[in-house]
């Protein structure tokens, strides 16, 4: 008898998870300008996808399209298994967007802002407090009106709102902007934790060194199209998806 036990043959029916984002030849226009001109992209669950490209390439439009904020003119798009054209309401309950603006109410305190956005997603007090703690916003800062915060503190508050909303798909547009070194480390930690908890993240950034360290895959957006990077560009040294 062979010392090596025979290994059973793997099942021929392997369950393949549907991609979290599936865009096929999508066209989106801003005014009369085609910001996305036939872009295609697939993102699997648990990926951290870095979108890089020059200003005006279509990165922000791509993120806003995935959030259902930009209408799909042509092509097919599914986000979290829902058709982006017909089922935006179902998608939005699970999507968190951090854009160039923070979506905060200047007259409300940090805690009141995070509580409001958390409550819209049904978050408990414990989850809201945890989000504040994770971003270092508990204590004195929690009672400061958002309008009196520095740019970095406002960004951290917006991130806490995103955490409290428990989004499954994070769409981050220049998330490092305005953050100091500690804030950037904190953001990277937040993203890693979110992915560890099952979230998928799309990041548009010009801060390539930092974002590359975070990404499991990189694509370049240029001229309204999405181009895949070579596998060596991201994630290879960490065994990440490419």
């Amino acid at each position: 008898m062979s010392p090596v036990e025979p290994v059973p043959a793997p099942s021929t029916t392997v369950a393949i998870a549907a991609p979290v984002v599936a865009l096929r030849h999508v066209v989106a226009v801003l005014g009369r300008f085609p910001a996305l001109a036939g872009a295609s992209l697939e993102v699997q669950a648990g990926e951290v996808l870095l979108l890089k490209g020059p200003n005006g390439a279509g990165k922000t439009t791509l993120l806003r399209l995935c959030a259902g904020l930009v209408p799909l003119v042509r092509g097919e798009a599914e986000v979290l298994g829902h058709d982006l054209r017909t089922d935006r309401a179902a998608i939005r309950q699970h999507v968190g967007l951090l854009g160039h603006q923070n979506g905060l109410y200047a007259d409300l305190s940090v805690r009141e802002n995070v509580r409001f956005w958390g409550r819209t997603a049904g978050a408990s007090d414990g989850e809201i407090n945890a989000a504040l703690t994770q971003l270092g916003l508990d204590g004195r800062l929690a009672t400061v009106p958002a309008g009196r915060l520095s740019a970095g503190q406002r960004r951290r508050t917006a991130l806490a709102c995103l955490i409290a909303r428990r989004a499954r798909l994070w769409l981050l547009d220049e998330p490092h902007a305005g953050l100091d070194a500690d804030g950037r480390d904190l953001l990277d930690d937040v993203i890693r934790r979110a992915v560890g908890a099952g979230a998928t993240v799309l990041v548009a950034s010009h801060e390539l060194e930092r974002a590359k360290a975070l990404a499991t895959r990189i694509v370049t957006v240029a001229g309204g199209l999405v181009h895949n990077e070579s596998p060596d560009d991201a994630g290879a040294d960490r065994g990440g998806r490419v």
Binding site: Q101, Y105, A106
Partner: peptide, 17 residues
Amino acid sequence: AVETADGALDTLRVAGV
């Protein structure tokens, strides 16, 4: 004005409220 000042209106839409 408080909804549009810092993009809260967009966040409200994205949040599926």
